[in-house]
Amino acid sequence: MSRLALRKKVRTDLRQKVQGLLPGLIMPLVLASLWFFFSSRSILPAPGAVLDVLLDPSADLLSCGSLFWNTGVSLIRVLLGLSIAIMLGTPIGFLMGASGRFRHFTFLVTELARPLSPIALLPLSIIIFKDTSFTEVLGLNQLKYSRNILNELQIGMVFILAWGGIFPVILETMHGVRGVRKVYIEAARVLGASRLFIFRHVLLPASLPDIFAGYRMAVGRCWMVIIAAEMLPGTNSGIGYLLRYSYQLSRLDIMLACIFIIAIIGLVFSRGLELLGEKWLLLRARER
C-alpha cells in the first residue's frame, strides 16, 4: 500500500471510529446542558466550577490533600487488598475446583461468608485492627507524623477490601476449573501428560477466561467497597473521605469532582481489564 493510500485509510478509519462514538455522546451532552441550565437556579455548582477543581488536581483541598493524593491513596488501598484477594483466592478456588474433597471441606464457610457485605465487617475490623497502618507493621515509626502513603494503608481497610475481592475470585476460579471439559483432561492423560503438566498446560489455560472474569468482578467490587468504607469512620484520607468531607462543608464543586473521578476510574478498570483480557491473553481463541 502506498504512503498516501495508507494515510487515507488511517483517516477513514479514524472518521469511522469517531462516527461510531457520536451516538454515545448525545446523552452526556444533553445531560451536561441540563446541568448547565439548572445550576444557575439551584444550589448545584456550575460545570465550570467543577471543571476548575478537576483541572488543578495537585492543589490542596480543604486541608485534606490534593485530588491526586486522595485518588492515589484509594487506588493503592484497592490494589493492595485486591492483590491479597487474588493471591489467596486463586489457589483456593483452584483447589475447590479440582478436588471434590476440598470443595466439601470449604463449601459451608465460603457460602456463609460470601453474602456478608464487607462494609458490615468494617466496625469489627476497626475493633480488631484498631487504626494500625503499614507504618507500624513495618516498624517505620519515624514516618508516622509525615504525609506518607504507608500511614494511610490501614490493616482493617485492606482486610475488608481483600474480603470483598476474594469471593468473586474464588467462585469464578472454581467454576472455571470445574467447567473444563473432561475430554481435554482425558486427551492429555492418554497422551502421556503428568498431573503437573495437565495442571500447567490444560487446566490453567482452559479456565483462564473465567479466572480473569473473577478478577474483573473483584476489581469492580473493591472499588465500590473502598468508596463506601472511606465515607465511614476509620480513615481521614482517600477519595471517598474527600467526598464526604466536602459534602459536610457544603463544597459541592469538590464533591461532584470526586464523583466524576470515581466514575472515570471505575470505567477505566472495567474497560481496561476487558481489553487486556482480549488482547493479551487471547481469551477469545476458545471454541465457539
Binding site: V183, E186, A187, V202, P205, A206, L282, A285, R286, E287
Partner: peptide, 8 residues
C-alpha cells in the same frame, strides 16, 4: 471428536 485443545 478430535479433542483438540482450542487455546493452542
Amino acid at each position: 471428536q478430535g479433542a483438540l485443545f482450542p487455546w493452542m
